[in-house]
Nucleic acid binder design. Structure first.
Lengths: 337, 337
DNA sequence: TTGAAAGCGCTAACAA
DNA sequence: TTGTTAGCGCTTTCAA
């Protein structure tokens, strides 16, 4: 690879001078500048970021750890993060835990070795002591760690409440929700706790089905829903993530249950999966763009000034009313930017 | 950050010795090894990959340039690539062109500065001379550049043929296809050329609608399809990518056109979008896993031995027969791994 | 305005 | 078996 030495030699100047031209720093005579620029062009020179970063004691990298890349909520988040980070001249080191997050410190090691300047961890679980050993600032999404760790999440409690109230308004009496653990009070699971609570307060029967894995695909969910609907034929309301909601719609159709007349379905995330089916699925929309940009901003600030007060941020969600609960209605869409 | 010097000092040895322990190379006495390992653990030391890479004249990074992250075909590919690259201890430098690929050399510059050891470019267009200036090996997906550049693509010609023949077998007489340019004979567009050709040979009317952008979302496609179906009410067959196919299904339902009885729809890509709608959409499935692993293997081989003969690889596609063309049938699924 | 030289954290060749 | 030293490509003092 062509290096600064080569450029300097061709331009007949020293390495230091060539560097000054490259970085547009210090005094350079116009002639010298031109000579060096010409040499750079002639040799098709690109500065070695690796070497620069070593000297500057930085890596220009931010770690992003997600449980999956393909679920649309995550691919959209990744897309926004990629843009945000690029705008600030950061590279993204993307790590896919494939749902093996349960207290897995390996990803943090990878990030450490690569001297990332910060990381955004999605629903990532570590022992408390392991968090203390992380040598770079982090922002935790959807999982509260402790006051000293910045935290961003959708207001999932509001999400659970919106979903519950909507189904109640729609007249449901026997509802089922499918989701992760209903015990752990993570910010992420709280929607299901709130949902159940709200149903109880309103005297509505609520079955809470705890999925064995977060890694279920469409067909796993379809089987789960089929079984639940057979077991509880009175069910008239359903609450789960968008993928499961699409599976629920499919399962209901198979069983000749009409949606929304006999069964109302509310999804979670507000992804494309809820938009493209017929009827479109009423869903609790998460503001992925705001989550991504907030996480970046908080992280950048903390990188710049490590003494910044850690930040706990809840981001509003929105109920998108669509055909899976409200018949003959133009589907509501996520706010456009 | 703690560095090797610190470890060496704490262990009471020289930096070189500590390095030998770190890399498990050369002769070290058991006592020394243990002392050094203890020091590393005590200081929570991680070697600086940046510094190592500078010395080794490598970056451990592979560039991946895609037109979008969110369309499921790409998020699945990215997911497979991430795994493949990680297995070979490479990091992925992910670049999203946001469909601004038309001869945009900026991404190649970013990759050059970061000294990526190779890159996988999806449907990426450059001037021929710009390809010559790329200082690292590349694999081009879905776009043939020239014999000296490795190339991987699904057999899109077969895909177009499968789609056409299937619609013909289903008895269609007036079909519409929606896609990119029908003029350029890129491997990616050839499916539409082949489709039109096959229709012509069979005396079937085929309208080819050239979309204004590859960046259309569900609602853009829905409007396009609504207009087409109103303009050509005789239409009984539709061919387009999965997202557009889902929109077509939705549009048809809005217009009270029954699928598959009155209108048959064949999608392309075989993504989750085609699975979750009802009826599920018959689609030409691309083997994303094979595309990803092949691209990686070809690239790794070329990195190892730059004189490897460039490789042109076509990967078979598969027709998944589902409810949007064949009534009352269990939907076919992509092969499981 | 430019050149020379030190050093970022690490590895590897050579000496001891 | 271990220590010393040079150098990866670059930036940045300090001198000239």
């Amino acid at each position: 690879m062509v290096k600064l030495d080569d450029v300097a030699r061709l331009a007949g100047v020293s390495k230091g001078t060539a560097s000054r031209v490259l970085n547009n720093r210090g005094y350079i005579s116009p002639q010298t500048r031109q000579k060096v620029k010409q040499a750079m062009k002639a040799l098709n020179y690109f500065p070695n970021e690796n070497a620069r970063n070593l000297l500057r004691q930085r890596s220009g990298m931010i770690g992003v750890v997600v449980p999956t890349i393909t679920y649309p909520y995550y691919s959209e988040i990744i897309s926004h993060l990629e843009r945000c980070l690029k705008e600030h001249d950061y590279k993204m080191l993307l790590c896919n835990t494939a749902f093996n997050a349960g207290n897995n410190i390996d990803y943090v090691h990878t990030l450490s070795k690569n001297r990332v300047e910060g990381a955004i961890l999605f629903n990532y679980q570590l022992e408390n002591k392991d968090y203390d050993a992380i040598p770079f600032p982090i922002v935790s999404i959807d999982r509260f760690v402790k006051d000293s760790v910045s935290f961003v999440a959708s207001n999932h409690e509001q999400g659970g409440l919106l979903a519950a109230n909507h189904l109640i308004e729609c007249g449901c009496r026997h509802v089922i929700q499918v989701g992760g653990s209903f015990q752990e009070l993570t910010p992420w699971n709280i929607r299901h706790v709130k949902f159940r609570e709200t149903m109880r307060e309103n005297g509505i029967e609520c079955i809470s089905y705890e999925q064995a894995s977060d890694d279920h695909d469409f067909h796993d969910y379809r089987e789960i829903v089929l079984q639940l609907l057979r077991q509880y034929p009175d069910t008239d309301g359903f609450f789960c993530n968008d993928l499961c909601a699409a599976a629920a719609l499919n399962a209901a159709t198979s069983l000749s249950i009409r949606v929304p007349e006999q069964l109302k379905i509310v999804g979670y995330d507000g992804t494309i999966l809820s938009e493209i089916v017929t009827p479109a699925i009423t869903s609790i929309w998460q503001d992925v763009q705001k989550i991504a940009t907030s996480a970046c901003e908080i992280l950048f600030q903390r990188i710049e000034d490590p003494d910044t007060t850690p930040c706990n941020m809840l981001i509003g969600v929105k109920l998108l009313r669509r055909g899976s609960t409200v018949p003959a209605r133009t589907p509501e869409m996520p706010p456009k930017r």
